[in-house]
Design a protein around this nucleic acid. Structure first.
Lengths: 239, 239
DNA sequence: GATGATTTGTACGTATGTATA
DNA sequence: ATATACATACGTACAAATCAT
């Protein structure tokens, strides 16, 4: 279950950096727990508690929390503590719409700029994923899904855009994960990927964009019902 | 010269918070100096130096720098120091393209969702800006320009998208500022805004998006020549 | 509403790692 | 190549504010 969430700007260097900064380790750990949903919105994050948990002092913990705040994953109310970012249903929908639009944007650019090698890799990934659909391996499909979409980002050959897209996608990971369990979403998702690839193959960027937008909105709809259950936090949506 | 750059996630609370966090003050100050270009890419930022400059200890400075790193405004090389983020010409172009696409995206959504009041305000802003074009008041036009584009973001009624758009725009502020001085860019910019507004008035979101994309790319071209001069930093584009 | 406990915000000290002579 | 200098990374200490009673 390699749930390595790569949030641009939130990783210092490539893998293998074992003697990395403590604040980085803590930040990665917390970011992962937040994106996977293990740390639910509204949860208070006490510095000392986290520090002892990681066998560190408060200093690196504070730095980690401050950085997560910029990434929008936690909210800091000065002198009142840090909480996992509250996501109102409206905000979640806004984030989904933004993701859908940015993905559509990416796939349009990718259609015009993808290299033969990239196209081949993308198709291979897609074909391979059929196996996860057949076997109902949601976890594997979820991993593939991220790889698939990120491969499209990269095919834009716009590094900055890739970072933005990956960053936004990561922030919705907790919600997307469960979305695939809804009904026959897995199969539909696969089919929609196929449509996107076909439009890309025809070089029709606008159509690919439309397909992608529809794909994302379908995923969003599959999620809508679930979101309401997610709101197990009290009425403290305000301050 | 009210150059208040609002980077989403980089401000803790509304105005009036005088006894705010020191790290926030420092971060805002540094962010402003970086976005305005007063602090040039590649500049080394020493903790102690900044601390004494702000009459603070190194702790809040460190937190500020860490946060700026997540926002992509500085680069941190562990135990080697913090430098103002290097922007390669390729990266700048990537950022410009991304901005152009996101602005296009925003104006399309805005076309369908803008309220009559918002539409009126936007038109009024545009009309008023004609005065700055006539008088050649670049500073005033630059301020208006940001307001104009952000008003379009807001007209999407997607809070998250607004935050993303504003954040990306802010990171290009240093480059955009000078771009308006190029030739008759001021007048052209105004005319292009008018075309965008006309397309919006017709309810033609796709055409508005095309106009906006063209508008942004024109601004980008006006800048290309300038960017090369900006590269006064050595060949240390690598690590 | 006042007081005590807890937690955050800032300052400072020390060690480790990096750059330089 | 070794050693020196220096900046960073982390820990600890204290002050101030928030909250809980």
């Amino acid at each position: 279950m390699s749930s390595v969430q790569t949030i641009p700007g939130l990783e210092s260097e490539a893998v293998g950096d074992d003697r990395g900064l403590l604040s980085d380790m803590i930040r990665h750990a917390l970011a992962d727990e937040i994106t996977t949903g293990r740390l639910k919105p509204g949860t208070l994050l006490e510095e000392q508690q986290i520090a002892t948990r990681f066998g560190a002092s408060r200093t690196p913990v504070r730095e980690a929390l401050r950085q997560l705040a910029v990434a929008g994953m936690v909210d800091i109310r000065p002198r009142r503590g840090v909480t996992v970012a509250m996501m109102s249903p409206e905000r979640i929908m806004d984030m989904f719409e933004t993701t859908a639009e940015i993905e559509a944007l990416c796939v349009r650019l990718a259609t015009y700029r993808i290299t033969p090698v990239e196209r081949s890799e993308l198709q291979t990934m897609h074909d391979t994923s059929a196996e996860w659909v057949r076997s109902g391996n949601i976890s594997a499909y979820d991993d593939f899904n991220r790889e698939f979409h990120e491969a499209i980002y990269r095919a834009t050959h716009n590094t900055f855009l890739v970072e933005q897209a990956v960053g936004i996608r990561a922030r919705l990971a907790a919600f997307r994960r469960t979305q695939l369990r809804q009904g026959d979403r897995l199969m539909k998702s696969h089919a929609e990927h196929g449509q996107v690839l076909q439009a890309m193959a025809r070089g029709d960027g606008d159509e690919a964009a439309r397909c992608m937008r529809a794909h994302m909105l379908n995923a969003s709809c599959a999620l809508t019902s679930y979101i309401k259950d997610m709101q197990l936090d009290d009425v403290s949506g305000n301050r």
